[in-house]
Write a protein that binds this DNA or RNA. Structure first.
Lengths: 208, 208
DNA sequence: CAAATAAAACCGACCATTCGGTATGTTTAT
DNA sequence: ATAAACATACCGAATGGTCGGTTTTATTTG
């Protein structure tokens, strides 16, 4: 059942759960080892350091939970685009909820912004990844806004960049506020409906 | 020149600078002591623990750098309101730039979101303060939006709450993105001009 | 097939270092 | 002389990491 590959993944998952709750310094080797149910020897058989497991955890988190595949979104209309965006964001969030393989249902408060900031400070390559992703996101938003303007879907005095940034920043800001306030119960649902409401409102204002 | 009160303040300032750069766990007593130029004995003469100095630092930071006095903003027009908002935000940021009493000019990268998250996790009362402030902010934005609608300053299909949140969240999101990307050189100027641009664009769109 | 061997997986006592904090001073101002 | 202001050697606990070993699994060999 549990060969070497599984054990490695098991350690990565357990570590990820811990890093979602506390920052790098706060998570101790003792905790990681206890959480995995293994020993220090086992851990250091698979990883050379706490830093290394953190780095691998973050790489996976970026690929599965942050990096967006904008090419897969609809570029027919702005409305379709941001609907796809919301869907994708929710799907990503959901994929991590299912990661808790163990039986504990405790609603532990997570803060992935914390995690991201920590990773950016420690790992220069990670920072670059994130900034690249941000830049790409802006590019695609500007693209769909341009299309929507040309097709007549929206009529506005705002520049493409202003509109694009308004969508992006409002999404980021909402996410941060929710993480700060909500004890993560129906955080996801709330995020979805709030974002929908705000972006719909903005969209309708741009249409008129 | 340096009586007891000054020494205390000196320790608070030095600690604050450190907490702006690293989280609570990462900042060590050794660093605080070295930064102040004093000794451990001196530190513990004024403070009972690392937690205590952190708590006091955060209290001061909240009062001087976060808490907004909305009552002092103009409620004549939405435009005036958000102009006052920007002015106030910049003034708060500037007040911390001048806090570096020592001669080192090094542009160290700060991340006050990091600091805030840390404080929220450690200090329940601080979390409450922040959430209260957020709620109050929303209240005042809704108020001025309502006024602007009534006076005919803006015409839109969006609800007061949607508009208010759009302003708030876009500001938050911009702040976070800037902190992530910029090496803090002209961060302040960039924040100001970007926020001005986005909010002006949004405002003009709402004017109809 | 089973016995022998090799290799991978895993364990836990141990290590040096650093942590926040204390105890016992010495200096300095009143 | 007294007390506040500082300094420093020191403390136990916790830290990330190591190392010699045992157990388990896989491979080879008779």
């Amino acid at each position: 059942m549990s060969d070497a590959r599984d054990t490695r993944e098991h350690i990565l998952n357990a570590s990820f759960m811990l890093f979602l709750q506390k920052n790098f310094k706060e998570v101790t080797m003792k905790e990681i080892v206890e959480r995995t149910g293994l020993s220090k020897g086992a851990f250091y058989h698979y990883f050379s350091s706490k830093e290394q497991v953190f780095e691998e955890v973050m790489d996976h988190f970026f690929a599965a939970g942050i990096k967006q595949n904008f090419e897969s979104y609809s570029f027919e209309t702005l409305k379709e685009f941001y609907q796809d965006y919301i869907k994708d964001a929710i799907a990503k969030m959901r994929s991590f909820k299912n990661l808790r393989t163990d039986n504990n249902e405790e609603t532990f408060s997570t803060n992935h912004y914390f995690l991201i900031f920590d990773a950016m400070k420690m790992l220069p390559s990670y920072k670059k990844k994130l900034l690249d992703n941000n830049q790409e996101e802006l590019k695609y938003w500007k693209k769909i806004v341009h299309i929507a303007k040309k097709s007549g879907e929206i009529k506005t005095t705002m520049t493409d960049e202003q509109i694009a940034k308004l969508f992006i920043y409002s999404g980021d800001g909402l996410g941060m506020q929710l993480i700060m306030s909500d004890p993560s119960a129906q955080k996801m649902e709330k995020f979805k409906s709030e974002l929908q409401s705000i972006w719909d409102g903005l969209y309708n204002a741009l249409k008129g």
